[in-house]
């Protein structure tokens, strides 16, 4: 119900004048007042897990998601964009680990570790993120294998560290049989070995995989068989070029 109102003329003259003066004063103060200053803030240390559990008020999954958004936005602070290299990766890893501990089924911290923070052009930080993902994978291979597969890619193509890529790929291959890893993930170590020039090992592993009968998809069998043929051709070419007495590892060496 609308309230009855007096006409403007019934107001004491000072009241509208006061209103206009106050509006002008506020606008003038708003213009004169120093604007907000953008300041780079360092990433704070992650609070203890127990504090987060209490702060979650029974909704750890929700808190983990909210904090992940905050963490993700931390490099884009109001008014400033902070390069990843300026972030303290030890603290970042602590935060990611806490969020993962809040909700074990939450995949976002692992995605961020491999695809966001792991893409930084700094090998030390990349290795830290890969190590974090590897530890997380060891706890729950069934759910976290995709991120270790990403870590293999990071090690292989970003770090150019084939030994690390092979170690990670072997972790994937050693996943418990019950873990629902697709066969391409379990076979990654074969392709890493091939990349390393370990053609004989790759050939044996690939042949063994095909013989084991684990591959029942005809397209996949065809793809892997073709890959095995390629490896055998490379291996034969390598042994022929080296007089048949050289290991597969030397197949990439320039011919004399």
């Amino acid at each position: 119900m609308a309230r009855a109102q007096r006409p403007l003329g019934a107001l004491p003259r000072a009241v509208p004048l006061l209103l206009v003066a106050a509006i002008l004063l506020q606008l003038a103060w708003g213009v004169l007042r120093a604007g907000p200053q953008a300041q780079v803030r360092a990433l704070p240390a992650a609070p203890p897990q127990a504090v987060l559990e209490v702060a979650a008020l029974g909704e750890p999954g929700v808190l983990a998601r909210l904090l992940m958004l905050w963490l993700q936005a931390f490099d884009d602070q109001p008014g400033i964009s902070v390069p990843f290299r300026a972030l303290d990766y030890a603290r970042l890893e602590d935060w990611l680990a806490r969020l993962l501990a809040l909700d074990a089924g939450f995949q976002y911290p692992l995605l961020a570790a491999t695809r966001v923070y792991g893409e930084v052009a700094d090998p030390t930080r990349q290795r830290r993120m890969i190590a974090f993902v590897r530890r997380a994978y060891a706890v729950d291979p069934a759910r976290r294998w995709p991120w270790l597969a990403h870590a293999v890619y990071l090690a292989r193509h970003r770090l150019d560290d084939l030994d690390l890529a092979l170690t990670l790929a072997r972790d994937l291959a050693a996943a418990p049989p019950a873990a629902p890893l697709p066969s391409w993930a379990r076979q990654m170590h074969i392709f890493v070995l091939a990349d390393m020039g370990e053609l004989e090992s790759a050939k044996v592993l690939l042949g063994g995989l095909l013989d084991s009968g684990e591959i029942d998809d005809p397209h996949e069998r065809w793809f892997l068989s073709r890959r095995l043929d390629e490896l055998e051709r490379q291996f034969d070419a390598g042994t022929a070029g080296d007089g048949g007495g050289v290991s597969a590892g030397s197949s990439d060496a320039p011919s004399e």
């Binding site: 309230r3 009855a4 007096r6 107001l11 009241v15 509208p16 006061l18 106050a22 506020q26």
Partner: peptide
């Protein structure tokens, strides 16, 4: 800001019955 809010409040208060 308090001056502004007082001015707004008084303006409305004086107009209302």
């Amino acid at each position: 800001f308090i001056a502004l809010v007082i001015a707004i409040g008084l303006f409305d208060f004086y107009r209302s019955e």
